[in-house]
Amino acid sequence: MATETSEHHKYYVPEPSPWPFMLTVSLFFMLGSGAFWLNGSTTVAPYLAALGLAMTLVMVFIWFRDVVNENLGGVYGHQEDMTYRWAMGWFIFSEVMFFGAFFGALFYTRMIALPWLNGEGEKFFTNLYLWPEFEGAWPSNGPGNVGGDFETVNAWHLPLLNTVLLLTSSVTVTWAHWGLKEDSRWKLCTGLAATVLLGAVFLYYQGLEYVEAYQHLGLTLGSGIYGSTFFLLTGFHGMHVTLGTLMLFIILLRCLKGHFSSHDHFGFEAVAWYWHFVDVVWLGLFIFVYIL
């Protein structure tokens, strides 16, 4: 297949497009206003930031619409398809590295910083003089008991349920993929719908867990290093699930409109890859944040 298309197919170079530039403007608008908001100007900045976010989403939507239309117009060949595959793969790799930073922070503080604060190893005097009698064990909010006492989320309640939900959703999305390859619209659409639903339920429980943590467990973003790593890791994961669910939903709509065929459906696969990535990150979270 590769040889037959690359022989005569001219790689598609799109026309000049204003959308990337407008997307940049929107991002700039959103982050600039966000910065002022963070700096404490709450009169207009929050609304401007929200507007920026809305503009960003609109620009992304328009840009992707162009891509979808080009694809439906049949301008993409095998080589373009490969481009999108490679690009998505590398994008997911960059996402992995982003989570890597936070997992790294978790491992470092648990394995290195906390023992040091306990006076282990070469940091004996740290404990003796600065944090006398501190004997932190994970989960810890540090010798300052920052944020006050807290309890951790029980891994075997909501998180376990969420693990099951996400793992199931990975199965359903694969099932939908089989349906797509078999040209079974019914299988595809139910599988996808189930996945979207599972994603949404996951998010609901995640939200519930946060409410629980804040209201009953005393576990907040400010609960020292445990709270920091817990909320940033699960929070960024949650944001990715939100994005993934949104993308799956759009893919579902596209499926309903009949955009994909059994041999040309990278849009679907890209989102499925992303979903699997989100799933794998969750497994890491479940093990290293909740269980251990």
């Binding site: 600065l130 006398p132 501190f134 010798p143 300052g144 008991n145 006050g148």
Partner: peptide, 9 residues
Amino acid sequence: DEASDDSGS
């Protein structure tokens, strides 16, 4: 010392 350091809250 411990008190001073541990008792913040």
